[in-house]
Write a protein that binds this DNA or RNA. Structure first.
Lengths: 280, 280
DNA sequence: CTCCGCCGAGTGATCCGATGAACATTCAGA
DNA sequence: TCTGAATGTTCATCGGATCACTCGGCGGAG
């Protein structure tokens, strides 16, 4: 096409110019039309859209959220296609996609390629899946705060689990406990350590709390903290502390479980606190 | 410009053509080079890119996250422009934008119009700002779980605050306490109620915990739950419970504060639990 | 009649180019 | 020296095109 236009004067340039002009006019008309509508007709929607608070995408996100919160969209339900939804909300598909992507990332929506966009079950696990980034990206004093937070929740979960755990769940806990005792591979120990706590947290019966703890115990966070911790011969101590938690669960003793879990996480917290004091 | 090119043959078209050609070639070379490198040289990067796990955007998100986690990008630092970053990660600008938007929404990045994209300070508040969605979208049994979680954290925060609160912070708490006692406007009471707890949570000295509680106490959640709760003449009881928490803070009595806060949230939790049992 | 594979419509995923808007920098003039 | 207008850089938004995937219908084989 370029070569053609280089060769000599032809009609294509005129065509392009006219098209650009037309497109410009259309755009102008559309914009004026949109502004015009906002003036009077759609009052109830206007309160949301007229004050252009933030970006267009942000508005789209809020509107979709509102649709779900108001019950217009239930869990598992399918949304209109991106194209239709974009028209419906008055934004372009690109902005629409960004909104959907953001909500997808937060676990509110789920996009199935070739099928459509659906609302998730809105379970705690879905919504808190992205919670892990906090743990992944925190450093320094924030890591201590995270461990303090985890100490509180983990001890509470252990206490609840001591009261509520059933035989199957206890067997699962014991399985990971034994697996940790019978290997020296650091990676394997780490994996079973995480699984050990996860089993307890799930046995506590509060899925929301378990999901938060899941985010707090993200793999990368564990790895970063414990790399140094376990080098100091803390593996044996960790094993003893796990065994103590387990005994409390078997004994159905909530307070013992609470204390044991608090001590377990508190040890790591204290170690990290001291290490930061030195490093600084 | 169009009119100019219509008038006669000039050099600009040649320039444009050459530029387009060059850009095309560069793109081609980059793509071939990437594919070629993936074969052997860059093994460690290859495990991330070669198996196209998930979507392109997801990969972009993970890569940016990795850059921050690895320290290549520090808090407050400016990222390359969208165009450069898109080329660098091998995705289009649209996908790039989606990734940036997702991270912006999570509070990891911040896009300043006309200036660039920056990494936030990565404070707990930034990262947990989107946490409120969980509270906004949960319903039924999940709301009880959220209140249970809040009971644990709020009581812990109250205990910590009793030990650490200073005069200014205590004055702030008292200000909201008095404001609640001297009005009957529901909206105003609600606002000061939230502020009352926020002041205590901030005085606890754990910003991460305060940020999580902030998300758990989102305005819409409060409104939904307390609309019914306060209709049952619970306002007076709420005032008494707040006063008790305040007395514990003044007395620097952590355990009293813990119990008072636990009772305060627990009352709402129990009420909601019963209400759900009836409704179901 | 039932089952299986092919195929086209529908839909999300990705890319591209263009234009507008907000901010930052530079430079001329008072 | 200070101010403000011109200029450049960058994000924000848009609409179109193309690719990849899924699902349901149709026709042929058994």
């Amino acid at each position: 096409m370029f070569i053609g236009s280089l060769g000599g004067v032809n009609g294509s340039e005129v065509l392009i110019f006219v098209m650009a002009l037309v497109i410009g006019l259309i755009t102008l008309v559309v914009r004026l039309g949109r502004k015009g509508l906002g003036g009077a007709a759609v009052e109830d929607l206007d309160v949301r859209t007229a004050p252009p608070k933030g970006t267009v995408t942000q508005r789209a996100i809020d509107q979709i959220k509102a649709m779900i919160a108001d019950g217009l969209l239930g869990p598992g339900q399918r949304l209109p296609t991106e194209r239709d939804l974009a028209v419906q909300l008055g934004v372009s598909r690109s902005s629409m996609r960004e909104a959907v992507r953001a909500l997808t990332f937060m676990g509110v929506l789920e996009a199935r390629h070739g099928s459509g966009v659906y609302v998730t079950q809105l379970a705690a696990g879905d919504l808190l899946e992205s919670f892990g980034v906090v743990a992944d990206l925190s450093r320094g004093p924030q890591m201590v705060e995270l461990l303090e937070l985890r100490k509180v929740l983990e001890s509470t979960a252990a206490a609840l689990a001591a009261a509520r755990i059933d035989a199957d769940q206890l067997a699962e806990v014991e399985r990971h406990l034994r697996a940790m005792d019978t290997t020296d591979d650091t990676e394997e120990i780490l994996a079973h350590d995480v699984a050990f706590h996860r089993a307890i947290n799930e046995a506590a019966g509060n899925d929301t709390m378990a999901a938060v703890l899941e985010g707090l115990s993200s793999r990368t966070f564990h790895t970063r903290v414990w790399r140094g911790y376990q080098e100091e011969g803390a593996i044996e101590r960790t094993r003893r502390e796990h065994a103590r938690i387990h005994r409390a669960l078997v004994a159905r003793d909530p307070e013992a479980a609470r204390v044991a879990a608090a001590v377990h996480v508190g040890e790591v917290e204290q170690w990290l606190r001291e290490r930061l004091a030195e490093g600084a």
